[in-house]
Write a protein that binds this DNA or RNA. Structure first.
Lengths: 166, 166
DNA sequence: GCCTAAACCGACCCCCCTGGTAGGATTTAC
DNA sequence: GTAAATCCTACCAGGGGGGTCGGTTTAGGC
């Protein structure tokens, strides 16, 4: 199995948020009920999305979560990366911020690390297919906005100002 | 981490076999020594490759393994699939031979399973990048065929060093 | 005909991570 | 002030990854 259930749950959570009007928060409980997922566990999942700046939250009664950007501007690579930590096909793909790649076995001077070539290609394939999919696409596929609650339509002008969201 | 170390070890093993002359078998021990991998574990790994028909073996003294096809004809998708069992991005991607996909959560009639769309794309991306790479390519990258192998000559000096074990 | 090198096989084992729970503290609308 | 919600930390059980061990067969070489 390539991705953990955190990714599955997190993506479903994002889709649910994408189906809601962007201006009023949706409680986790509503999502947990709708998707049949354990609430307490969802808390951990959504925390990652929040720390990554993909969703915003309001505490207190009638609080909840909403997308920090319109679904059209959210690439699934961001979502999965936030949920899974990093998208690395193999252990030795742990970067330390720089581009250095720590390879488990000896970096034999003479010959290159052939497996690295392979895993690099795989990683590229994964990331490209994730990038090519936006959250909006999945929301649409899932049946579009849940109810015509309010316009999911966001004026194009407002889009650019996506808050950096520490 | 997407692939287990079985994939890493198995690919390296295949590359080692690709570097050898195809007509005389290479012992696992030679590969284990060359790559610094545990022999007993490699046995399990190579068993998968054998069952998948990617390598052939000869038992007994001077036995060993060799590629059952030229490296140019071996796609890395076959190799990884043999080692990992199946290349499924998510739990619900367990086919039962037919094309039916068992999806963990309710197959809601109205709307499609949106995450399935995403994982299908990811799976496609992975498999395509694996298919696009042949074992021969990796062998070449690793420095081509190893030295015109100094025959399995009984070199007394070298042997003594590793002799007295157990 | 031994002896030894190898492939083969199956059982076992440890540790870490995933998946999930429990219980609380804090914030906010009414 | 109370209820609804986010937030946070600790904890835990199970399973699978990553091996190890011991033994059985097969085949060359002397």
């Amino acid at each position: 199995m390539i991705f953990s259930s955190k990714a599955e749950y997190g993506v479903r959570l994002m889709i649910e948020l994408g189906r809601q009007a962007p201006d009023h928060p949706t409680s986790l409980k509503a999502i947990a009920d709708a998707e049949g997922l354990p609430l307490a566990y969802l808390e951990q999942v959504v925390a990652r999305l929040r720390r990554a700046g993909l969703v915003m939250s309001a505490r207190g009664a009638h609080g909840g979560y909403w997308l920090s950007r319109p679904a059209e501007e959210i690439g699934m690579d961001e979502v999965v990366q936030a949920l899974e930590g990093s998208i690395a096909p193999m252990e030795c793909f742990v970067h330390d911020r720089t581009e250095r790649v720590l390879c488990s076995h000896e970096p034999d001077a003479g010959r290159g690390c052939a497996t690295k070539l392979l895993w690099t290609r795989v990683q590229g394939g994964i990331i490209r297919s994730l990038q090519a999919t936006t959250l909006a696409e999945l929301v649409q596929f899932a049946g579009g906005p849940s109810v015509p609650v309010a316009l999911p339509v966001v004026d194009s002008a407002a889009l650019v100002a996506s808050a950096p969201a520490q």
